[in-house]
């Protein structure tokens, strides 16, 4: 495959998506880095991989809605992961400790995360359960990204 096609493929994106992103002042590199942050927090806090995948689904939905712009991308991604953690972790996790890790990794203050939490929750229309078909592609891709293979 040509490098260009490959690049599109790994991001699951098309020309259309990229146009939408540039309108919001976002680059694919920035997004890739945010995804990596989510995975890092997941590993540092020993969270479920599915939590990171769900957080990413939230974040993508908000990109589609035009809620994410260059300036708030880190904050919104951090809140998405924070919400995913609350809804998805079945073990008892220390929410406040995870919040500390998230704020460090995403370089945003805990206060601003808590401040934005409800707006993001509302923007997601309070629907935090994502259907399998939305979730699985990200889950599998992240699964490969962290060096485990499912087959």
């Amino acid at each position: 495959a040509k490098p260009d096609e490959h690049r599109q493929d790994t991001n699951g994106g098309s020309r259309e998506i990229q146009l939408g992103l540039s309108a919001a002042g976002l680059t694919l590199d920035q997004l890739r880095r945010l995804k990596a942050y989510m995975l890092r927090v997941m590993r540092e806090q020993d969270l479920e991989l599915s939590t990171a995948a769900i957080g990413w689904v939230y974040f993508e939905k908000l990109i589609w809605k035009g809620y994410v712009v260059k300036d708030n991308r880190k904050l919104v991604a951090a809140v998405c992961l924070f919400l995913a953690l609350k809804i998805n972790e079945s073990r008892e996790v220390s929410v406040s400790r995870s919040l500390q890790v998230i704020q460090r990794r995403f370089e945003v203050s805990a206060d601003s995360i808590l401040d934005q939490e409800f707006s993001v929750f509302a923007e997601l229309e309070f629907s935090l359960w994502v259907p399998r078909r939305e979730f699985m592609p990200h889950f599998l891709r992240m699964f490969e990204a962290i060096g485990m293979f499912c087959y």
Partner: peptide, 8 residues
């Protein structure tokens, strides 16, 4: 302000 935001 609660330290962990919206309750689980």
């Amino acid at each position: 302000r609660p330290t962990s935001g919206i309750s689980q």
